[in-house]
Structures are given as C-alpha cells and as structure tokens.
C-alpha cells in the first residue's frame, strides 16, 4: 500500500479544483445569495417542528384513544347480572325473545372493543420516531456519521476520495488481469477473480466524473476496494492512509442532487466522501 501522494501538475490541480467546485455546487445549490439561504434554511426547521408537534398531538390523541371506554348511559346491562337470566320453564315465548334481544346487545359491544385498543401498538412507534429526529445532531449526515468515524483516502486520476471504513470489504492489490464481460458500459472494467469469487470492478473515474474523459484502464490502476461485502469494487491508482473525521468536518449534502453517491466533501483534506450504501444501491439499480 503506497503512502505517497499523487504527482501534482498544474493541469490536474485545475481539473480537480473545478471538480471540487462542482461537487460543492451540487451539495449546496441554494448558495446563491444570503436571502435565499435564509429562506431555505428556515423552512425545514419550521417543517420539522410542525411535524414533531403534529406527531406529539397524534401521540396524545392516540394515547387518549387507548383509555378504556365507559359504556353509554343507555347501554344495556351485562349478561352476568342475575336479572337477565332466562327462566324457560315459567316464561312465555314473547318474553323470552325480548330477553334474548336485550341480552344480545352487550355481547355486540364486547366484540367491537379490540378495534378501539389497536392504537396502543402505534403509539410507541410515533414516540420513538419523534425521539430519533430529536436525537440526531447532524440531520444531513448518515447514521454512521453521527459520531467520529474513520475513512480511507484514495486517489482516482488526481481526485482524492474517501470511504467510510465501516462500509469497506477488502482492499485488493491487483495481481492478474480482469476478465472482460461483453456488452457492459464503459465504466464496467470487468470481473476480478479472488478466492473463487468474482468482484465486478468499476472504473471510478468514468463512473463519478464521466465528463472529464479519464480512463483508468489506460492510466493504470493498482488496487480495487470492495464495497461492503457486495460483488462491487472501485478501481483506484493509489491508496493513502486512514483518517478519523468528526461529523462537523464534513460539509454534508443538503439535498438529493445528481450525485447520489456523494455524502459530502471534506475541505480539510480536499476530498469527496462517498456514500457507499447509496453507491451500491445505484449500481444495483443499474443492475436491475
């Protein structure tokens, strides 16, 4: 594993800077003037509070609904009471029918009861969801990034990328050629066989910045990084060290943009942080 940085040239710096700028623009499309920023940032807070308030109201109403129902004042008496027992031997038929009809009503009431009780199950979920929203200190950050987390830095055609260590499978140094599978898109480099398993290799440069015209197959790559425990892996030229990041070191993406694989950018390291789960989902959806 190499620990040296990539050779810097003016051209690469300019291209990478442009790309980082475009990533930031994608992350924060709303940064155009301060008035717009204020408008955009205040609306979600109001919405969140409104949602929480609505959920609290829903919770209280749901809890209220779980209170035991008191029978209406004009409701018939329960079956167990002695005066409702039927004395068949000495009672005329008309009276027996009247008594049976009278007795049937309380039974009907007891059947309807479970429907009223059902909101008991829903109520804890609403409370839990409300607590989850309140607990997340960095709402834009994924769950795994709410506290300090380790990332691996690697280089793709001069662009530094980072992936969360928890989302990685293996880092494999390429020792044999890839198998070519016909009819695949340009970013699909082929299959790498490792321990009787096929890892499908993505040309990271072509996939995440196709507009730049880079080609890892031509420029060479030495490592592939397995994403989670999936069959997908990213090709890269160099792998750097791991660094520990705090959530507030990352400019988290604020909205769904055209790059779902992008979790955010780390200005301190001038790198883009990859959202591995979204990237794998994206590759799988291309697969569908």
């Amino acid at each position: 594993m190499s620990v040296s940085g990539p050779p810097k040239s003016v051209k690469v710096d300019v291209v990478v800077q442009d790309y980082m700028d475009s990533l930031l623009a994608d992350l924060f499309p709303e940064i155009q003037d301060e008035a717009e920023v204020l408008a955009v940032t205040t609306v979600p807070e109001v919405t969140t509070q409104t949602v929480v308030k609505e959920k609290e109201e829903a919770t209280s109403s749901a809890v209220a609904m779980t209170q035991p129902l008191s029978p209406p004042p004009d409701a018939p008496q329960p079956l167990k009471q002695p005066q409702n027992t039927i004395e068949l031997a000495s009672t005329p038929v008309e009276e027996v029918i009247a008594q049976v009809a009278e007795v049937a009503s309380p039974i009907k009431l007891s059947i309807e009861a479970p429907e009223v009780v059902s909101p008991k199950i829903i109520a804890p979920e609403i409370v839990a969801a409300t607590e989850l929203i309140e607990e997340r200190a960095y709402p834009s950050a994924p769950v795994w990034a709410q506290q300090a987390f380790d990332v691996l830095l690697f280089d793709v055609c001069g662009l530094k990328l980072a992936v969360c260590m928890e989302s990685l499978g293996r880092i494999i140094k390429i020792e044999q050629e890839l198998n070519q599978l016909i009819g695949r898109p340009a970013w699909f480099m082929g299959a790498y066989s490792e321990n009787e398993q096929s890892l499908y290799v993505v040309d990271t440069a072509k996939f995440i910045m196709p507009e730049k015209g880079y080609d890892l197959a031509e420029q060479g790559f030495e490592f592939i990084i397995q994403l989670q425990r999936s069959n997908w892996s990213l090709a890269c030229k160099e792998v750097y060290s791991t660094v520990r990041l705090l959530p507030d070191q990352v400019k988290w993406r604020s909205s769904e943009g055209k790059r779902p694989w992008l979790a955010g950018t780390v200005i301190e390291h001038m790198c883009a942080l990859i959202h591995v789960d979204s990237l794998v989902d994206l590759l799988k959806s291309e697969n569908a």
């Binding site: 599978l181 016909i182 009819g183 695949r184 398993q197």
Partner: peptide, 21 residues
C-alpha cells in the same frame, strides 16, 4: 453458476447466461 450484473443497455450483455469459476 453466478449471475452477472445486467448493467447497460447493450444487447450483447444478454448473451451471457452467467459465470463460473
């Protein structure tokens, strides 16, 4: 036999039924 990722729209990708080591 493993299935292969069916990425892209190229018709030739359909020629592959699967792969095996």
């Amino acid at each position: 036999i493993e299935t292969t990722p069916n990425v892209g729209n190229d018709e030739t990708a359909k020629f592959i039924q699967g792969v095996c080591h």
